[in-house]
Design a protein around this nucleic acid. Structure first.
Length: 497
RNA sequence: GUCCCCAUCGUCUAGCCCGGCCUAGGACACCGCCCUUUCACGGCGGCAGCACCGGUUCAAAUCCGGUUGGGGACGCCA
């Protein structure tokens, strides 16, 4: 039996044993949700911190639950997150012969055995056990078969799976996050490693591939702890030293249940579409379970790479808090320079039909000002399109509450009309000049500037809040402002008639 | 049901391994005040937590045991 060179190399000790090689191994049965994304981030940070290798392996041994589209989606998500890989994607489904070769070896060394029980039979037994509240474990029916019986079944061509023979004793390991973990082997089932159709199962393929790919550290969700005991048993059956394990806490939803494909998970791309910045999202997810321990929260990707360590991972499961994500995103938006931010905002404006590709290029200067006016007020890129809509479209309704506060007298009509006249007289339509004009007017009228400011704001924007009024007016331009105020005058007139 | 894991403000966390510096620190959210034409940003302040019970010790958030609570795994899924 000639196993792969990697296995052999490993047995006598790899020369590059200290090289850090990590992987993420998603199954393409769903998109990349926050749980896997966070696992990917930790693996990636760990790899980059140790100048190691980050590998993508697609666990598609179950074709009924896999699709090329999902693989694409996963790769796209990793790309958005900026988690560049050094190797892969490898496809587990293409490595079947290798897995079988390894299984064969276990059969030869009697560390594994054929099982002729059908899935139906097993299901029956499981059901029965459950009904009587007993706990289920494979009863080793097929291990007890005599050689003659086995021969007979094989000759008859009965389908057979391969099970690992779990020895007696105890399985233990030192987890980089959870410290010492152990489990009695009698609590571990003789798991199937190769199905009756020849395809390997997850736990087996996973071990073989991790061995073959010389994975040094397996960083994955703590929902895999029970798998790890099984996998260590497989390593032992091959007389191999298992890699280091680091189980990271699971991200829980608001309801405290694990975020999974079946449970309220959404693709990370959804966050992109909601207007989250890649850096902010990465920062937030990295901090869900890990902390640099010095109260710092806003960390650049480089800084995270520098500071990341598995020892800094908190073993308790965190709850995903969208509000804090929004806050952090706002921090990143405010810290972004206008040019970069503008590029990021444009697609959102286009999507809302507020601008076109063409106008985005033509009116770049104006967009840059727009972005700088709104960046302090937006938590997501989408907010720019929502809060700043009136900059691009004059089809708004006046906020009802604001109307009762700021369009509340026939006097407003006269004030607005006079203000329009003053605007017409301005040589240059600049915010300082506009402000001066307004303040002069309110002085003459012996009223405070604030009420008129509010009225003009409502007329020009339809809302009672937003960036400083004179910046808005300047950016809107004289013609547009005059048009909007005149329209407001008509509106107020009908209200008081 | 069996097994595994976890447990500090509502949430994310620091402190825990190596007991005293903890009157438990930071952040989000929330509430006040200041700044201000509004909204935000920013600044200042406030609210709020060591799950519980025992033990060890001069001393426990920190060590030990139990209870309770929460999560996860128990597939010819991954």
């Amino acid at each position: 039996m000639n196993l792969s060179h990697h296995l052999m190399k490993n047995q006598r000790g790899c020369p590059d044993m200290n090289e850090v090689r990590v992987r993420i191994a998603p199954s393409p049965s769903g998109f990349l949700h926050v749980g896997i994304a966070r696992t990917a981030i930790y693996n990636w940070l760990f790899a980059r911190h140790h100048k190691g290798v980050f590998i993508l392996r697609i666990e598609d041994t179950d074709p009924s639950r896999s699709s090329p589209e999902m693989v694409e989606a996963i790769i796209e998500s990793l790309k958005w997150l900026g988690l560049d890989r050094d190797e892969g994607p490898y496809y587990q489904s293409q490595r079947k012969e290798l897995h079988q070769k390894y299984a064969q070896k276990l059969l030869e060394t009697k560390k594994a055995y054929f099982c002729f029980c059908t899935p139906q039979e097993l299901e029956e037994k499981r059901k029965k056990a459950k009904a009587s509240k007993a706990d289920w474990k494979y009863d080793r029916t097929c291990l007890k078969l005599s050689d003659a019986e086995k021969e007979k079944k094989i000759r008859k061509g009965e389908p057979r799976a391969i099970r690992l023979l779990v020895p007696s004793g105890k399985t233990e390991f030192d987890d980089l996050v959870y410290k010492h973990l152990e489990k009695e082997n009698e609590d571990i089932d003789d798991l199937i490693i190769v199905r009756s159709d020849g395809r390997p199962t997850y736990n087996f393929a996973c071990v073989v591939d991790d061995v073959e790919m010389r994975i040094s550290h397996i960083i994955r969700g703590n929902d895999h702890i029970s798998n790890t005991f099984k996998q260590i048993l497989i390593y032992k059956a091959f007389e191999l030293t298992p890699p280091k394990f680091a189980h990271i806490p699971l991200i829980l939803g608001k309801d405290k249940a694990k975020v999974s494909k079946r449970h309220g998970a959404i693709s990370v791309m959804e966050y992109k579409e909601q207007g989250f910045l890649r850096e902010a999202f990465l920062n937030f997810l990295a901090l869900l379970g890990w902390s640099p321990k010095d109260n710092r929260e806003i960390l650049s990707t480089e800084k995270m790479i520098e500071l990341f360590s598995l020892e800094g991972v908190n073993p308790a499961n965190p709850i995903f808090d969208p509000e804090k994500l929004e806050w952090m995103n706002g921090e990143y938006i405010r810290a972004s320079d206008n040019e970069k931010l503008c590029d990021l905002v444009i697609p959102f404006l286009i999507k809302e039909n507020l601008i076109t590709d063409k106008t985005a290029k033509q009116k770049r200067e104006r967009l840059l000002k727009f972005v700088s006016l709104f960046k302090e007020r937006c938590k997501t890129l989408k907010d720019f399109a929502e809060k700043g809509k009136y900059f691009f479209a004059f089809d708004y309704r006046y906020e009802p509450k604001a109307v009762s506060e700021h369009f509340n007298s026939a006097e407003d009509v006269q004030r607005l009309n006079t203000f329009v006249q003053r605007l017409d007289q301005l040589e240059r339509f600049e915010k300082e000049k506009i402000e001066q004009a307004l303040r002069n007017l309110t002085d003459e009228m012996k009223i405070k500037p604030a009420p008129l400011i509010h009225t003009v704001r409502l007329a020009a924007t339809g809302t009672s809040s937003g960036p400083p009024l004179f910046d808005i007016l300047e950016l809107l331009g004289r013609e547009e402002v005059v048009k909007r105020i005149k329209k407001a005058v008509e509106f107020i007139k009908t209200k008081f008639n």
